[in-house]
Amino acid sequence: DELEKRVKKIARKLNLSLDQVEEWLKRNNNDELVEAVKRLKKK
């Protein structure tokens, strides 16, 4: 979905793993995208 695409884009842009992106999003209080990261990690 759109949020998952955004997460992947962030990960690529910042050259981070999904775990690192998740931490980064949590620090930025971006719950919506944190949920998207969790969905991606399950895939």
Results as ranks from 00 to 15, higher is better:
1 D>P: 07
1 D>F: 08
3 L>S: 07
3 L>R: 06
3 L>D: 11
4 E>V: 08
4 E>Q: 06
5 K>W: 10
6 R>G: 01
6 R>A: 14
7 V>F: 03
7 V>G: 01
7 V>R: 02
8 K>Q: 14
8 K>N: 08
10 I>E: 02
10 I>D: 00
10 I>G: 00
10 I>V: 03
11 A>P: 01
11 A>K: 03
11 A>M: 15
11 A>Y: 01
12 R>F: 06
12 R>M: 12
12 R>G: 07
12 R>E: 13
12 R>S: 12
12 R>C: 15
13 K>A: 13
13 K>I: 15
13 K>V: 13
13 K>D: 15
13 K>P: 00
13 K>W: 12
14 L>D: 01
14 L>W: 07
14 L>S: 03
14 L>M: 09
15 N>H: 13
16 L>N: 02
16 L>S: 02
16 L>I: 08
18 L>W: 11
18 L>T: 02
18 L>H: 01
18 L>G: 01
19 D>A: 10
19 D>P: 03
19 D>L: 07
20 Q>L: 09
20 Q>F: 05
21 V>E: 00
21 V>F: 08
22 E>I: 12
22 E>F: 09
22 E>Y: 10
23 E>M: 05
23 E>C: 13
24 W>V: 06
24 W>T: 01
25 L>A: 14
25 L>T: 00
25 L>N: 00
26 K>D: 05
27 R>W: 12
28 N>K: 10
28 N>A: 11
28 N>C: 15
29 N>K: 11
30 N>G: 09
30 N>W: 15
31 D>V: 14
31 D>A: 13
31 D>G: 08
32 E>D: 11
33 L>N: 02
33 L>I: 03
34 V>K: 05
34 V>W: 11
35 E>Q: 08
36 A>H: 03
36 A>E: 03
36 A>G: 02
37 V>L: 08
37 V>Q: 02
38 K>A: 06
38 K>V: 07
38 K>P: 01
38 K>Y: 00
39 R>Q: 08
39 R>Y: 00
39 R>N: 10
40 L>C: 08
40 L>D: 02
40 L>W: 06
40 L>K: 02
42 K>C: 14
42 K>N: 11
42 K>F: 03
42 K>D: 12
43 K>T: 06
